[in-house]
């Protein structure tokens, strides 16, 4: 399966995963300085999902994201500097500093936005999929959601409606084991997200979300199905988050060594490296060069964001409408 991906594709995937990781690890540090305001939910640990999914998507395919959206944004091609500036609340941010971490969007890139409302992405993706179907160009809409989001009525409704209307929607569920401070094994009654979703009448797959190749292969299969007009599908990816729910979370609900263990055993970057080096798909020098390049880009993104001006106060009441007499 992995041979289907060219060297460039693999380098690109690694670069995006590394970019996400370093973006988040850097934010984790910057947040401690108190310079970044508000709520920030970091995506570290889940990189392989965003990148493995988006690796298949074209510019015209649409994604809808979550409160933990930085990884999805990067994987769908949002400008990393524009994202950083947005998180710093600067006028140069992708949302002019009006939205912040939880609301990064880039409609030109087919990224319909991170979202502060858990579960809101399901219905939005169904609508985006309807638009894609009406256009008839074989495009799809993907909603990302967590193990917590699938307990929203809106997501149930969206899944059923997507089946009824036979829409090219793909529900990607990132099961990182927790919704805030509550375990998925408690909150998902059947403990089986993929199975429950399949009961709506959708094709569904469950795969290892720490392994880029597993995600890539699973998504490939689902996309063939959706692009062929055979209706919506669900992918449940098992993954983990390396940080707390939000920055500042003491994580009392997690076993003491859990994060340390997951960082050793479920690190998508380590797993990717081992895989490509073992199969001689890429060489270490190329990967190391990417690492260095990513780090310097993140450094630039942070210093440019810091130096950028805040939005003008007149911006408070602009962009509320397209027009308003």
């Amino acid at each position: 399966m992995t041979s289907q991906q060219s060297r460039d594709q693999l380098l690109g995937a690694y670069r995006q995963m590394k970019m996400i990781r370093e973006f988040e690890e850097r934010l984790h540090k910057e947040i401690m300085t108190g310079e970044i305001a508000g709520f920030t939910h970091l995506y570290s640990g889940q990189e392989a999902v965003a990148v493995g999914v988006c690796a298949h998507l074209e510019a015209d395919d649409l994604i809808v994201s979550t409160h933990r959206g930085h990884g999805h944004c990067i994987a769908k091609g949002c400008d990393v500097k524009g994202m950083m500036a947005e998180i710093y609340g600067r006028s140069t941010g992708l949302g002019k500093g009006k939205g912040g971490s939880m609301h990064i969007a880039d409609f030109q890139k087919g990224m319909l936005g991170a979202n502060g409302i858990v579960g809101a992405g399901g219905p939005l993706a169904v609508g985006a999929a309807l638009s894609a179907k009406l256009d008839g160009k074989g495009c799809v809409a993907v909603s990302f959601g967590g193990d917590g989001s699938v307990n929203q009525g809106a997501v149930f409704e969206a899944m059923n409606m997507a089946v009824v209307l036979k829409l090219p929607a793909i529900f990607v569920i990132e099961n990182n084991g927790y919704s805030e401070h509550t375990g998925a094994d408690y909150a998902v009654g059947s403990k089986d997200i993929a199975g429950r979703s399949a009961a709506f009448g959708m094709k569904s797959i469950k795969a290892d979300g720490s392994d880029y190749f597993a995600v890539y292969d699973a998504m490939g299969e689902l996309l063939d199905h959706a692009r062929a007009g055979k209706g919506p599908c669900v992918a449940e990816f098992e993954t983990t988050r390396f940080f707390g729910h939000f920055e500042g979370d003491p994580q009392k609900y997690r076993a003491k060594d859990e994060v340390k263990r997951h960082r050793e055993e479920m690190d998508s970057l380590k797993i990717f490296r081992a895989h490509v080096l073992n199969d001689r798909l890429l060489d270490e020098t190329a990967l190391d060069a990417i690492d260095a390049d990513v780090l310097s880009l993140i450094e630039e993104a942070v210093s440019e964001a810091r130096a950028a001006p805040p939005p003008q106060l007149s911006e408070i009441t602009t962009d509320v409408y397209v027009s308003y007499p």
Partner: peptide, 14 residues
């Protein structure tokens, strides 16, 4: 309360 289904066994984790 938080902590339901967590791995620490702490029942009021929140």
């Amino acid at each position: 309360s938080g902590g339901a289904g967590g791995t620490s066994g702490e029942r009021e984790a929140s």
